[in-house]
């Protein structure tokens, strides 16, 4: 595992998300109402909508362009045959850490 510190947890709003730029595309880091974070590819597979701008509810996010809903624990779309890539993410000492090894490997 290769954890990267991307910033303090307070930088992500409760029930919100922030975007992280990577050499392999943008990743959205979500924070739910509980103290938990998820990381996933930021682009909706439907029309490329920015998922970090969607409404976060429970452990789901709704794409702001056409309301596709994704489960952040699995990346699976609700009622659609589609999914987004998810990546390991955790909170440690108030900092958000993500591991993008899988993303880098896929790109390589």
């Amino acid at each position: 595992m290769s954890w990267i510190d991307i910033g303090p947890i307070e930088a992500i709003p409760l029930r919100g998300a922030r975007r992280v730029r990577t050499p392999h595309g943008c990743v959205a880091v979500f924070r739910t109402d509980a103290q938990e974070v998820f990381a996933a590819s930021a682009a909706c597979p439907h029309r490329g909508g920015p998922l970090d701008e969607g409404i976060v509810h429970g452990t789901r996010v709704t794409c702001p362009l056409h309301n596709w809903v994704f489960d952040l624990t699995t990346g699976q779309a609700v009622d659609e045959d589609a999914r987004i890539d998810t990546f390991p993410a955790r909170i440690e000492a108030g900092r958000v850490l993500i591991d993008l090894t899988r993303l880098a490997n896929r790109a390589a």
């Binding site: 910033g7 922030r18 992280v20 730029r21 943008c26």
Partner: peptide, 14 residues
């Protein structure tokens, strides 16, 4: 500040 990406990992990766 909220409008910019939280982090830019492109340089670190390079």
């Amino acid at each position: 500040d909220d409008f910019a990406p939280l982090a830019d990992l492109r340089l670190e990766a390079a």
